[in-house]
């Protein structure tokens, strides 16, 4: 057994959340620099230029890139040989969130109907996974909800096939238009069940831009969807252009013979994501 102090986890995760609020990942910045060259619409080029300038200004000044520093979503992979000491790990992760958001925007209401702000951006949404070994890996996604609001999940019959998947994804992007803050990162989950398909789409957003599915038929779908999305004309900020999305990541799951669950999770052009290993 390996013992990990929860106080250490709290400190490290708090620092990570604080840092990624003002520092966007390098693979995203690299993709945006490429997009600036590829985009042919003058408005689109201008928007990409401004977003890159905003990213470097935010990093230099240590201010958030976007006022919506999101809801903290944590993906925790715990080695089965790990033992936590000094407190409860779930509570430590909520404390880490509270610490990090002390000077970030509080964007969480405790109840969706009563809508009273929780005051400290908790609860973080935590997804647990038990894995082999004695490691601890935590990935964070600080999800702005402009893009989350335009995301969709639906249960389809198998008969819709690949064609139906394309139509649903494109319809989602078309409806989102400028609302989700393009250039987007598009996470698609296919299969599983109502609960897991959405999670698969969300996990797809953790993949670095430029990564390709290991399954050839899924990789092909990712490429074709990206081309089709970028043919919609929406462009950066919806001001027209050929860069509506930077990447499409598709995750597939085993499912029942009776269904084809489908989820599309959109990430805005400010992907606050990071990973730490302990």
């Amino acid at each position: 057994m390996r013992t990990i102090e929860v106080a250490e986890v709290r400190k490290k995760v708090g620092e990570l959340l604080r840092h990624s609020a003002h520092s966007l990942p390098e693979d995203y910045l690299e993709a945006m620099r490429r997009a600036r060259v590829e985009e042919q619409s003058p408005s689109g080029q201008e928007v990409i230029e401004i977003l890159l300038e905003n990213a470097s200004y935010a990093e230099a000044e240590t201010v958030p890139t976007c006022q919506d520093t999101g809801m903290a979503i944590l993906f925790v992979e715990v080695g089965q040989e790990v033992r936590f000491s000094g407190g409860e790990i779930g509570a430590a992760l909520q404390d880490a969130t509270r610490d990090a958001y002390s000077d970030l925007r509080k964007s969480v209401v405790s109840d969706p109907l009563l809508r009273v702000n929780s005051g400290d951006n908790t609860p973080a949404l935590i997804h647990w996974e038990i894995v082999a070994g004695d490691g601890l890996r935590i990935s964070t996604l600080q999800k702005g909800f402009g893009a989350e609001l335009m995301s969709r999940v639906q249960m389809f019959p198998p008969a819709i096939g690949e064609e139906g998947v394309y139509d649903f994804v494109l319809e989602t992007i078309e409806t989102a238009g400028p609302n989700a803050c393009p250039p987007l990162i598009v996470g698609v989950g296919i299969g599983g069940s109502l609960d897991t398909v959405g999670l698969a789409a969300k996990k797809a957003l953790l993949r670095p831009i430029g990564s390709v599915s290991e399954a050839p038929h899924v990789a092909k779908m990712e490429g074709e969807l990206l081309d089709a999305i970028n043919g919609l004309g929406i462009g950066p900020q919806g001001l027209g252009g050929f860069v509506t999305a930077l990447a499409v990541h598709v995750e597939v799951l085993a499912t029942h013979i009776a269904a084809l669950p489908l989820a599309v999770n959109l990430n805005c052009s400010a992907p606050r994501r990071a990973t730490l290993e302990l």
Partner: peptide, 12 residues
């Protein structure tokens, strides 16, 4: 009017 969403630090 639209403002550039995500350019929040510059807008401030």
């Amino acid at each position: 009017f639209g403002a550039i969403a995500g350019a929040s630090a510059l807008l401030a």
